[in-house]
Design a protein around this nucleic acid. Sequence first.
DNA 1: ACGGGTATGGATAATTTTTTCCATACCCTC
DNA 2: GAGGGTATGGAAAAAATTATCCATACCCGT
Lengths: 122, 122
Amino acid sequence: MYEKKIPKDFSCGFSVLMEIIGGKWKSYLLYLIHNGVHRPNELHKQMPSATRRVLNMQLRELEFHGMVKRVIYPELPPRVEYFLTEFGDSLLPVIFEMNEWGNNHLERFQKLITDKQLEAVA
Amino acid sequence: MYEKKIPKDFSCGFSVLMEIIGGKWKSYLLYLIHNGVHRPNELHKQMPSATRRVLNMQLRELEFHGMVKRVIYPELPPRVEYFLTEFGDSLLPVIFEMNEWGNNHLERFQKLITDKQLEAVA
DNA sequence: ACGGGTATGGATAATTTTTTCCATACCCTC
DNA sequence: GAGGGTATGGAAAAAATTATCCATACCCGT
């Protein structure tokens, strides 16, 4: 386990939220689980560009933070399913609003990026 | 200037938002500028644990993304002030909602962190 | 026995972000 | 001219995050 060297300051709500959903795939994981994708392998199929390794790690962090619950079925082959907790559910409206703001300015932002790349080429 | 090697995917609103406010001090910068702290040195005094270097870099990114406007006064000693753009203003409600969610769960989260540290010591 | 399915994690490399250190340039006051 | 104020950025180190590679273990069907 990696030990952080610079202590983080969780004195404001924003920093807490960022600690919980700051990971590269976390918000998408929450979204997919909310949408009925519960098993690790299924989640991976929905986001092939992520590694199983990273998904497992971020899922465990989400579990540690109380956003998802990991249910192990005593079967063979092994089956595991993740579900949102009540805590995790409460986060969805925030994620949706964040996503909505971004969508409202998506084109403008993409144009910005494109123009910058053109400029770099020229 | 640092060139990214892994291209980012800005196809969803969430990723756009995270690109804009994902930096360690960016949301706090926006908040302070909104609250009337406009000059770089004043901003630094409000967040002493950040370096002037980092603040400058993140301010330039916020400017590039169109969230703040940098105004240079042709005076001596030099004076520079940052202001939120209309674009930046539209982001504030989202930041406030993120912060509010975190505040509502602040104690629970901090207890989680504390317990983990105690566990590590034991 | 081999290939495929499930789920997971160690070790290390690569990438990205942030920090640290030091440098510039100009003006003012003492 | 020494010390303070303003604003800014290069170079490199440190820290944090993510990616890559390979390994485990068990079961099923062929």
